[in-house]
Design a protein around this nucleic acid. Structure first.
Lengths: 103, 103
DNA sequence: TTATATTTGCCAAATAATGTCAAGACGAAT
DNA sequence: ATTCGTCTTGACATTATTTGGCAAATATAA
């Protein structure tokens, strides 16, 4: 699994000098689970991302972006035309927005 | 759910004048299930995509691309910074490839 | 209407994801 | 070398999500 989010999380945690145990406690999960989130073995829940951003005084939008990126990465990394898939999706998103705006 | 793949599938099927029932039979699934795949209510399995491409004489890579795109779309469509997420992933893919090439 | 094709809702089975526990590994002391 | 605290890993139970089938409903033709 991808660790775009986890790596950032660890960096933030190191900067703030907080232990995994402390964060785990705030999220009300086992330290093992938190560890896995940081290592990319488990996915954080959306609400947990918000809680983490809050606790670490980090940019919520940035963390959510990284968190989503991990999910996307895991899907396209397995495909050989990853870049093309991404632009295809970008296209569709744009079209959808354009359509929505027209209404 | 997204229908990038399903729409293409229907188009191909219409062109070839094949019924859902026929395709369902080839995939060895219920027609209802096939219907859902086309409508985007169910996700086809990877092997089913291959089988479909084969049966419809369509470009396997194209179908796989659309199929993956659906999965990605569903993830980023919920986020407000979808485009940024996509480019972030594209970046990471590139970096990874570059790293891999260096070895 | 009658026949065929497509679609929907609901349920059970299969699969995947999440979390905990217990045990192990690593470092920095002492 | 042992102790202490932190971090990591693996196996397992629990939960959530996904999948497929059945039956009924709704089109679409003929």
């Amino acid at each position: 699994m991808s660790t775009i989010f986890g790596n950032r999380l660890k960096k933030l945690r190191d900067e703030k000098q907080i232990t995994q145990r402390q964060l785990a406690s705030i999220l009300e999960i086992d330290t093992a689970t938190y560890c896995k989130i940081e290592k990319g073995d488990r996915r954080a829940k959306r609400e947990q991302v918000l809680e983490l951003a809050n606790t670490l005084k980090a940019d919520i939008k940035e963390l959510l972006r990284l968190w989503s990126a991990d999910k996307v990465y895991d899907i396209v990394a397995e495909e050989d035309e990853a870049a093309q898939i991404l632009s295809l999706v970008a296209e569709n998103i744009t079209n959808y927005k354009r359509q929505k705006a027209k209404l």
